[in-house]
Design a protein around this nucleic acid. Structure first.
Lengths: 236, 236
DNA sequence: ACGGATTTGTCCGTATGTATC
DNA sequence: TGATACATACGGACAAATCCG
């Protein structure tokens, strides 16, 4: 009970009780971490550890600059995906799914892209470079990949891509990817984007497929090494 | 009205859906940014970031002091699925989407399929042969392809396949496929199925991919010739 | 022609979570 | 553990442009 470890355990217990109160409707905002720390007479680190657990359980979600909020009730998220969305396994599933679909989309797009979409794709690449914050850059990256899906001219393929893209912007996954970004370099994503664009301009389906494959494979290895390090850290 | 998880990506998704609504004729004015922010429960910055993307895509245009308006008619954008589900174009879109996704699923499944799913796939093939009516044969065929998607072990890929499969069972398409079946022979689908199963048993990803590709390509040519004949008949 | 009202575009201060020491 | 620097979000305020009476 005196161990520092038990401090966060106690905090977790109290915080969980606070969140489970009946008047805590989904979306209501919780006190700040600093308030909790003062109220429970402990440090902010202990509070954060406890909140991390609650977030992993899906009871709350946090957003930098905004606050901590109680999440939707479990009854609303029975989908299996929700149980793994914020886990490394979810991250790897997502990138694998993208690796399965998007190179094929690039191949089709190269064969069919109407000439007017190529400048739009180039504009997306430029905007990624110009973006000042991560949220904007992510949004433009997403828009770029969507343009490629749309260039296939197949509404079903576009709809499939939109589903994939929705998972990509899952809040839990966004946190994970932010962590990965902070621990590993940004990589050469922009070079990859330009290579994809060049293949589309040339109408070379095989090259576009390969370029997209390489682009996503690079992401895959980054995430894979991150997850492995994570697992090793947990073993210790 | 209550969407706790806010990020500009989610806003983009909803705004795009709002703009694509059928009653959004080109030139109609959209709500103000502040209204959108209040409606989506997020800040104006997130809304503006999403609108920037929509503007780059040409769906909307903005003018300071005036407002935000939906852009020129997107004639060359893929038509929504609802307007083409029962048309030959819808049939071809569907088979193309399957041709894009399912060979990749077969490749992954060959590498990962747990041994206990192989008998289930074999059983599906047998049931197709035993089926007396087209409806139940279709159901077992669908179950077979789903087993392969499930064998990838990736819940996201399974979800993607389920979306595709839902479109496949669209009532309008079923009629069309019934017509195709009546005018052309059944083909060698069962031989293809066995070839896919053999590749999965051998754990040969490349062979499984090729087998699935050939299987769906055969369907594709059948549908394509049917649609061409249909078009020629309409010309006369 | 004028002026008030409204809307987009831009900036800043404050509050909050994140990361590091 | 505690403290500090940092990135981001939100809301308000203001300017510029437009619309309407």
């Amino acid at each position: 009970m005196r161990d520092p470890q038990d401090c966060s355990a106690l905090a977790l217990q109290k915080l969980r009780a606070a969140v489970m109160l009946p008047d805590m409707a989904p979306g209501t905002r919780l006190p700040t971490e600093r308030d909790f720390a003062a109220q429970l007479g402990t440090g902010r680190r202990a509070i954060r550890r406890a909140l991390e657990v609650l977030e992993a359980e899906g009871l709350i979600w946090r957003k930098r600059g905004a606050g901590t909020f109680v999440g939707p009730p479990q009854a609303l998220r029975p989908r299996p995906w929700e149980t793994m969305s914020a886990s490394p396994a979810g991250l790897l599933s997502l990138i694998e799914a993208r690796l399965t679909l998007e190179p094929q989309l690039a191949r089709l797009a190269a064969a069919r892209a109407a000439p007017e979409v190529l400048p739009r794709i180039a504009s997306c690449i430029d905007r990624i470079a110009l973006a000042e914050d991560v949220d904007s850059a992510d949004l433009w990256d997403s828009a770029l990949h969507r343009e490629i899906a749309q260039a296939t001219g197949n509404p079903l393929l576009l709809a499939l891509f939109d589903h994939l893209n929705a998972w990509r912007h899952d809040p839990g996954l966004r946190n994970l990817r932010a962590q990965v970004r902070s621990t590993s370099g940004a990589g050469h994503a922009q070079d990859d984007h330009r290579r994809i664009l060049a293949a589309l301009q040339a109408g070379d389906g095989a090259a576009a497929e390969r370029a997209m494959q390489d682009h996503l494979a690079a992401l895959h290895t980054v995430y894979l090494t991150y997850c492995q390090e994570e697992a090793r850290a947990h073993d210790v």
